[in-house]
């Protein structure tokens, strides 16, 4: 195997990990604070992608792309707020199965909604000109957009870390992760905090959706595809852990990209073998904490 081939495989693995990290971070954040496994997270990803595509089609140039991200974040944050206040809020004290069923119902509702609003046709949009085409990295031809995705994921990771460690909101979220009841007793508005966290998680999925659309397409079914891989990421990394999500995304992305190079038929299986191995070794994931 040549160095070029190795670098190329490494980069494709990283860019795969980038989208996975952005989406799974939201999933993990929501679980950490709310202890809700949100199956509809993939739906937020899909809605974000379709909203993004619509805006990019309407507004030319880099401004359109930035606007697309903003619009997707706002739309999905509103949807997530509705889901949290109307449905999930009533179910926090119920068993987890009910929460799962509620979010699964949302998957079906959003899927039909997207089909109703945007139709059947997959939508593809051009990548923003600044980051389109490819770049020659010492003999390795690689898409600029994929490098852009990797950069965005790193920036978002740092931003999330800062949010969690440097802000009041982050402090409250961390407090909610360890003991929401105590947080309520000391005067924090826990229901509002939960709504904000759920909306923030949804917004991350939406950003992932907008970023993914120019690389592939916005299409029906992308909700299910992403949620399955995202679950693998957070289960490996540990639900609720930001560092774990980053490590999980890297593991899944790189295992996949090198897996198909060496054992093409079994790449996806290898990802899940890694998942099972991690679970056997650490049942709460690499960086997960034991259930409170």
């Amino acid at each position: 195997m040549t160095t070029q081939a190795f670098v190329l495989q490494l980069l494709t693995g990283l860019s795969r990990a980038a989208i996975l990290f952005i989406v799974a971070a939201g999933l993990s954040l929501v679980f950490g604070a709310l202890r809700v496994v949100n199956v509809a997270h993939g739906s937020f990803f899909m809605v974000g992608a379709f909203v993004g595509v619509t805006v990019i089609e309407a507004v030319e140039g880099p401004a359109g792309f930035v606007l697309a991200v903003a619009a997707a974040v706002v739309v999905v944050a509103v949807l997530a707020t509705l889901v949290e206040t109307l449905a999930l809020r009533r179910l926090y004290t119920s068993e987890h199965l009910l929460q799962l069923l509620a979010t699964f119902a949302c998957v079906l509702i959003f899927s039909d909604l997207v089909q109703f609003l945007w139709g059947e046709r997959p939508r593809s949009v051009r990548q923003p000109r600044l980051v389109s085409g490819s770049i020659n990295l010492g003999g390795v031809i690689f898409p600029r957009y994929s490098l852009f995705l990797i950069a965005v994921a790193v920036v978002l990771a740092v931003a999330l870390w800062a949010l969690m460690t440097r802000t009041r909101l982050g402090r409250d979220i961390r407090a909610a992760v360890s003991d929401p009841e105590m947080l309520g007793l000391v005067g924090a508005n826990v229901p509002l905090l939960f709504t904000v966290v759920f909306a923030l998680g949804g917004a991350l999925a939406a950003v992932g959706g907008v970023l993914a659309a120019p690389q592939s397409t916005a299409r029906l079914g992308m909700d299910i595809d992403i949620i399955i891989e995202s679950f693998a990421v957070v289960i490996i990394g540990g639900l609720g852990s930001l560092v774990g999500t980053a490590v999980g995304a890297l593991l899944v992305g790189l295992t996949f990209s090198f897996g198909i190079l060496f054992v093409p038929q079994a790449a996806l299986a290898i990802v899940f073998v890694v998942m099972v191995a991690v679970l056997m070794w650490r049942p709460y994931g690499l960086f997960g904490v034991v259930e409170r």
Binding site: V37, Y92, E95, H96, L97, L100, L108, I224, I228
Partner: peptide, 25 residues
């Protein structure tokens, strides 16, 4: 709003069930 402090473990069986439902979908 009150939450139970001792919520049942999320439990992988439940997650697997949902993944199975997704697969069915």
């Amino acid at each position: 709003m009150k939450r139970r402090t001792h919520t049942p473990r999320p439990g992988w069986p439940a997650l697997l069930l949902v993944l199975a439902m997704l697969a069915a979908a």
